[in-house]
Amino acid sequence: MYLIRRFEEEAARAYAQGKIGGFLHLYIGQEAIAVGAAAALKDGDTVFQTYRDHGISLALGSTPEACMAELFGKDTGVSRGMGGSMHFFDKANGFMGGWGIVGGHVAVAAGAAFKAKYAGDDSVTLCFFGEGATNIGGFHEGLSLAGLWKLPIVFICENNQYAMGTPMSRTSAIQDLTLKAQGYGMHGDRFAGYDVATVRERVQQAVDRARKGEGPTFIEIETYRFRGHSMSDPAKYRSRAELEERKKKDPLAITKSQLTDAGMSLEAIDEVEEAVEEVVSAAVKAADAAEPAKEEVMFDSVMATKLGPKNREEAEV
């Protein structure tokens, strides 16, 4: 969790320096969810997330070097500089992507769960999205099919209170989102996501159920993003006081006090934090030094069948 936090703080700094372009959606404040959920998985499971994808990618085991390099648009990035912040992919670690169109990946994730059922393997899929996504058609069709076919998937709605600048009171007629999933015949669960152990335990229950063939679960997890929707959002729609109040439930602070309560010394925590500092600054250095994204990768990666253009001349008209 601390790695994700520090990784993103450095990413924000690099963004301000112009080393990162495009949209940068930070996960700061929500880290307990990615880390807790990832801990409930085993090899062979797959995960789909929105554009707010750095946290889960790191939690699943992507290296900070490859993640930072992706943000810097480098060839050594998780998506070789093709995807950027919103489109991390790390197949080896089960991460099937950061997706840019709200709701667009929900049915796709159900498709990965369909594969597990079809092939008769016992893998499970996790699909993350925000509360804003529960209003779009793609969400409903994905859940509808997953419920109908009892697919081994867990839908995790990270309710961070705002869809861009709009609070849920202005986007949804109901405030308990598990009611939406109920109509699709799936299990529902709903809890606060500030304590990483709780997240792990509750997601584990849903994952186990899916693995046993008992169908999908929809989980609504209460959380809060400390930064704006993306770097370009000054978040004027919420008050300073609200933010400060919410920061009292910072999952990192909660974990830290749990660790000291359990007998971990402050020095030992410092050591962990220092190690993270080194990893993150090494990632920034490596990303700085890496080769920029490559033309041939851009052309070759479009299709598996190599019949497309291979250079500018062929790609012109």
């Binding site: 372009g21 495009g22 992706e70 648009g73 480098k74 998506s79 500089g81 093709m82 995807g83 950027g84 912040s85 489109h87 920029p292 994204a293 033309e295 851009m298 052309f299 479009v302 497309g308 253009p309 500018r312 062929e314 790609a315 012109e316 008209v317």
Partner: peptide
């Protein structure tokens, strides 16, 4: 008649490639 447009690839993220794909003054 000649045409100048974006290159025939999905738009990549990296800025060096984005500038390469979009129509430029030089093209």
């Amino acid at each position: 008649i000649e045409r100048v447009g974006s290159l025939d690839v999905p738009m990549p993220y990296a800025s060096n490639l984005e500038n390469f794909v979009l129509p430029t003054v030089e093209r």
